[in-house]
Simulated scan of single mutants.
Amino acid sequence: MNGILATQIRDARCGQRAAFRSGMGSALRSFRKQKGLRITHISRATGISTQAISRMEANGRGITLENILRVGEAIGCTDFLMAHAIRLWRGDAQ
């Protein structure tokens, strides 16, 4: 019974992380496009490769607090991204 419960908890956490990464990737892309910026601009401003930014936006790979802050600063919406990150982690945002 404990093994089954542990597996269910692990799976729920993996699902929460996946939903968080996906939601943040979508938010990064949305905010970037609203500002009329290209990935290359964000890359130059942050030092993060264009490929890494593309992966973050597409599937949330490489999303870290540091990267959220760096990209948010380059886009000019750090506060919005951080608030969105908190809502996503709590499960309050889609």
Rank of each mutant, 00 (worst) to 15 (best):
M1I: 04
G3S: 11
I4R: 07
I4E: 15
L5C: 01
L5D: 15
T7N: 08
Q8H: 05
Q8E: 14
R10P: 00
D11W: 01
C14V: 03
R17T: 07
F20A: 01
F20L: 12
S22N: 06
S22D: 14
G23R: 00
G23P: 05
G23L: 12
G25M: 08
G25D: 15
G25F: 15
S26P: 00
L28I: 08
R29T: 10
S30Y: 07
S30G: 01
F31R: 08
Q34A: 08
K35A: 13
G36W: 05
R38A: 15
S43E: 14
R44K: 10
R44P: 00
T46G: 04
T46P: 02
S49G: 11
Q51S: 08
Q51V: 04
I53T: 09
R55W: 13
A58N: 07
N59T: 05
G60E: 14
G60N: 10
G60F: 14
R61F: 07
L65E: 11
E66H: 08
N67I: 00
N67S: 09
I68W: 05
V71K: 04
V71Y: 12
V71G: 09
E73D: 13
A74Q: 07
G76P: 11
F80V: 07
A83K: 03
I86F: 08
I86A: 13
L88E: 05
W89Q: 06
D92S: 13
D92I: 11
A93K: 01
Q94L: 15
